[in-house]
Design a protein around this nucleic acid. Structure first.
Length: 271
DNA sequence: CCCAAGACCTGGCGGC
DNA sequence: TGCCGCCAGGTCTTGG
């Protein structure tokens, strides 16, 4: 479900409801996510105040005095503030009950998400330490993208989606950024010209920024932490539009599979 | 080291 | 209406 804009939208939606509040109980109805949810979580979090909610790539980091809960939403996960009186649904696997009555509820039909606990600094956790730079930070520059792409024979689209290169760019925004840059998704990353690398870095930033401003992309049932859908779907130029006319040249968009992911591009506009 | 494919899991959709 | 195959916002793991 979520790429960086949807995770960031979730973070911003949840923060005002949860910051500085104390956890009174954690209920895990189904611990079988990508990795088992630690059984000690209720014991560990009970009575602790939530100090901050940060994001690193597509991970949400819930900081407490004694450690950090790492939460990844996988493909179909969502976090929202729910009513205490609302009975949990079939795929509502986890609740955090806060002492003031606020309820945080995790919903994830496919269970590719993860909730883990670490007492080391989150940046040092195995899943976080090897991540590439944040795309919206000053670390992610045209020069960085260009240098990293040298000698890479991999198609630029799956390369762009590799979190070791840059975090947060998933299938939707990879398709969009490549269209905006006029780059064919199958082109070898190492064959990017300097000018193309410059365009691509700028467009990755632009599309992610614009999507965050719209509250993310709602395709099926994504809602941010405040329960509102995202409005970026209406601005997608290629994702989900295979066979439909290119918005720039009216030629039909081509759909192919690259690294087992649906890839849509305009053969006229993207070289 | 690099890259492609497989794996995890449920539900919705189109086609017959 | 029912069944079947395919597809879906991610990413760790395996194998060539």
């Amino acid at each position: 479900m979520p790429e960086l804009p949807e995770v960031e939208t979730t973070r911003r939606g949840l923060a005002p409801h949860l910051l500085a509040k104390t956890v009174s109980s954690v209920t895990v109805r189904n611990a079988q996510l990508r990795w088992p949810v630690p059984s000690e979580l209720d014991h560990v979090l009970k009575g602790q105040a939530l100090l901050d909610i940060r994001r690193r790539g597509k991970y949400l980091l819930f900081d407490f005095a004694e450690g950090t809960a790492l939460w990844h939403l996988g493909m179909s996960g969502s976090l929202r503030i729910a009513s205490r009186h609302q009975a949990p649904g079939k795929h509502d696997h986890i609740d955090w009950q806060m002492a003031d009555g606020t309820l945080l509820r995790y919903h994830d039909p496919r269970r590719f998400g993860a909730l883990l606990w670490t007492t080391e600094p989150a940046e040092q956790h195995l899943l976080i330490a090897g991540l590439g730079p944040e795309p919206l930070s000053d670390q992610f520059t045209a020069e960085y993208l260009y240098q990293r792409s040298r000698k890479r024979s991999q198609a630029v689209k799956p390369w762009l989606m590799d979190a070791k290169m840059v975090v947060g760019v998933g299938n939707i925004y990879a398709n969009e950024a490549l269209f905006m840059s006029g780059i064919n998704p199958s082109k070898a990353a190492g064959k990017l010209t300097r000018a193309q690398a410059t365009l691509l870095a700028a467009n990755v930033k632009q599309v992610l920024h614009a999507a965050i401003e719209r509250g993310g992309t709602t395709l099926r049932d994504f809602v941010g932490g405040d329960g509102k859908p995202g409005y970026f779907a209406q601005e997608l130029r290629v994702y989900g539009r295979g066979g439909k006319p290119c918005k720039a040249c009216m030629q039909p968009l081509t759909e192919v599979r690259l690294a087992q992911r649906s890839t849509v591009y305009c053969p006229g506009c993207q070289k």
